[in-house]
Design a binder for these strands. Structure first.
Lengths: 347, 347
DNA sequence: ATTAACATCGAAATCGATTTCGAAATAACC
DNA sequence: GGTTATTTCGAAATCGATTTCGATGTTAAT
């Protein structure tokens, strides 16, 4: 039975040292394996430290070493399969490497995003990982990170202009493959439910779609492009309805996201329109539900785990380099994507 | 155009003070609105601080104030709708209150969970929020948190034995309501796809189910209980198949989770068994896909956002109390749940 | 015995901000 | 004028760990 005192002495080096009648210096050295400590003294210190459950005060260590061993992560949305799998990968790997992760959600607000950057810099995190909000136009907050000499790695939703490491997929190529898959299965009039006009990956997916249409001698029809503002299930549903009621001759849809695609599928199921016989649908992301919905959704696999892992790997490398005062070489890593054929498209 | 020197002087109070020819003390006081600073000096300090973009070194502040302004959060799984919405709520509200959140994922491993507790205590977070892993039996790591005088609030997956604040739903009552809903719609032979044997909420949901069966004079049949080990889509699918092939007389299923329920739905859809005509299904959680699957899934709404918010509120209150040396009153808050009727059950 | 080499230790500075306490200077009062 | 308030400032201690550098004492070498 332990008696807990109202005021318990904190376990510090000072305490350990005075308990053993030695100096703080020696106690510190004993625990850090300095050579100039006698075996006897070292053992005494190590034993007492273990007995008292000593752990170095991280505040003091941070101040001394100028490292926080914390990484900042800013993403637009947490409740989102792709991002939560990225977070997952980052947190796990970071922990293994001795870093903890502070996660923030910009909620697609650029103002909030800027505040969060400041918060992380004030906390003096060792590095920052970011996937940009759709609304980001002013890049000065990002430059501020770089000027503060805090390593920065952008992933997925990046800015090409910013000079730092990046991890992305080739959205244009992936969208091209998805569209090609539709064309190869015999579709000729392919609509595109695209994302908002600003974000680079939304633009790229549109361009990939368009290129495929043109490469395969189909005619690009502007009226078959529907622009999602919030990229929601509801929008997918509504655009599918609009498309259907418009009586346009369309035999396939490439949706910016699985969520949007599933919205469309739901509408067509309700309207008794057969997928893929009457209309083929392909999504983007390959989140869990794509394999579960009926019919199961063909899609482009977007490797969230891989992206998180590589982004963190790059960041840690830069943190190490910065610490040594070495120059950093910025890399842009493009991860491969695969088209996954399921039952919402013809073979 | 700025010239960036190889070695930039960090902006510290010391620098500001020496620049203005005053002491560090006065500079500090000027910025913290101490009364014993002349207006002229104060203005000079404030202006220079702004000009140089001074922010106090958080490492030093932490060391001095013994606060990190960081909260630790440990959950079993991130890629999980319920938990990601909890995280979401916590992070957002914490930020508003001036706290950042370090998130860790125990991955349902008790060993990992213990390491993570140590990590957070070593980092000297101001408080810890936890949802326990299924495998937790040894409660000493939790007691360690409490003994370290770090405020702790458990939510969702809790331990009743631990003396701290808790935020939960009444799983038993919620499961009772769900089962009652099935009974009221005319079902008489109700199977239960339950969760693992250890976790309290899995036990409680089972007990709620059983109580409803007994209260309404149906016979409890042990052979209609299927125990998920990992609570996955696949298990739901497989148990549905087993159930079907066993030729047991069953007209309804109460599944521990929407995910499991959706697994079952998928199987029955494939097997051409009509829902809810031939079999009714009700899930638990109300994650997004429940409204999207076909047929849409009746379920129990588990208020993730609300839970995150209240857990954080309790924690912040305890942090404040601890700081003032006040005694903490532990509360257990039970959040209400609703049965949501959709198309997988009869009216 | 004397010097050199080595082993073992600790005082003190440092990281940067905060706060206590007292000193100095000025203003206000009788 | 002398005393007391008031204003304004800064030296120094503190938070806890780390690291440099110098001081001992001990042993080995000549």
């Amino acid at each position: 039975m332990f008696i807990i005192f109202d005021y318990m002495e904190p376990v510090t080096l000072k305490n350990i040292a005075s308990e053993l009648g030695i100096s703080v210096t020696t106690a510190s050295k004993a625990l850090k394996n300095y050579p100039d400590v006698s075996p006897k003294t070292r053992k005494a210190v190590v034993d007492l430290a273990k007995k008292l459950n000593y752990t170095p005060n991280s505040f003091a260590v941070n101040l001394r070493t100028k490292e926080s061993k914390i990484i900042g992560l800013i993403i637009p949305e947490i409740v989102h399969h792709f991002f939560s799998s990225v977070i997952n990968a980052i947190i796990k790997k970071a922990e293994k490497k001795g870093y903890l992760v502070i996660t923030l959600q910009s909620n697609e607000s650029d103002k909030l995003e800027e505040k969060q950057i400041d918060l992380l810099l004030d906390k003096r995190v060792d590095g920052i990982l970011m996937s940009l909000s759709n609304n980001r136009k002013d890049l000065s907050p990002l430059k501020k990170i770089i000027e503060s000499e805090t390593p920065l790695v952008l992933f997925d939703k990046i800015s090409k202009v910013i000079n730092c490491s990046k991890v992305i997929i080739d959205d244009r190529k992936a969208a091209y493959s998805a569209t090609k898959h539709l064309i190869n299965s015999g579709c000729k009039n392919i609509a595109h439910f695209r994302g908002p006009l600003n974000p680079q990956n939304s633009i790229d997916r549109f361009l990939g779609y368009k290129k495929a249409i043109e490469d395969y001698k189909l005619t690009f029809d502007k009226s078959l492009i529907y622009t999602c503002e919030k990229v929601t299930y509801k929008e997918g549903y509504n655009f599918a309805k609009q498309l259907h009621l418009s009586n346009k001759k369309v035999d396939a849809i490439f949706a910016i996201t699985d969520l949007v695609a599933i919205g469309a599928i739901t509408y067509f199921n309700e309207a008794n329109i057969k997928i893929p016989e009457q209309i083929s649908i392909i999504g983007f992301s390959n989140w869990f539900m794509a394999s579960v919905i009926s019919p199961s959704l063909s899609t482009v696999d977007q490797p969230g785990n891989e992206m998180g892992k590589t982004a963190l790997k790059l960041l840690l490398k830069e943190i190490k380099a910065t610490k040594k005062g070495k120059k950093i070489e910025y890399k842009t890593i493009v991860l491969p994507t695969d088209v996954i054929c399921r039952n919402s498209t013809k073979k």
